[in-house]
Amino acid sequence: MRLKAYWTAFAVQAKQISRYRAAAFGGMVTQAFFGTMLVALYDTLIGDRTLFRETVTYVWIQQIFFRAFFTSDTEFNEQIIQGAVCYTLLRPVDLHLWCVIREMAGKIVNVLMRLVPMVLLLFLLPEAWRIRPPESTLGLVQFTVSLGVGFLSIAQINLIVSAVLMRTMDNKGITAMINLIMMILGGNIIPLTIVPERIQTLLRYQPFAQMLDAPIRMYLHTMSAPEWLLSLGIQLFWLAAMGCLSRGLWSRNIRRIELQGG
């Protein structure tokens, strides 16, 4: 019974997001352009061809999954500001979990809509500039599992923003700031794999690297079992930490939420 309610939330949100196909296409062309510009620059900068091919693949995976950094549930944030959130509060469900599921549904659909056309679009580029396939099937499995964990931790960050929103009612400042930090420390602005060695070791273990950077590393190099479990363990550790934080903030703020409007 309960489970069914969450499943419905997932399906409804997935359907809702899949309506925005035209917007997805416009965004995709922009993404492809920005990616191509980065690749063109790295082509000149990186002499080592293996490293260059890896960096190209890194850039494209970042561009394909880029949309997942942002919340897909703008409707809920809108509700908080306008006061309509009171209806959602009445639902006999665990609201935090409910929102995680909606967020995940939105992210998955957003990514699936862009995945195939984006990869096709990349075939317009010269061969060296295209994304390369994963090193092995095992690598692809490792990547996919890790990506799921990555999406879950992005969802936690998105929910932390919503929790702050419940108190401050100011949408733009905090959202912009968190999104930027995710893009910078998450490897979208510059691949974390080409950052100088000593800074890279630091960067690898911070929470924002667990979102897309950790999965991409598995795509590029298939890991041995212990190596993979360690990497996944770090991801799960940060997921748990951020999950606790976002749940804590939610249960505190939902009790004192101030409803707007009449």
């Binding site: 733009k172 400042g173 905090i174």
Partner: peptide
């Protein structure tokens, strides 16, 4: 405050 936050962004 909104101005300050967005400038920092």
């Amino acid at each position: 405050s909104s101005f300050l936050l967005q400038t920092i962004a």
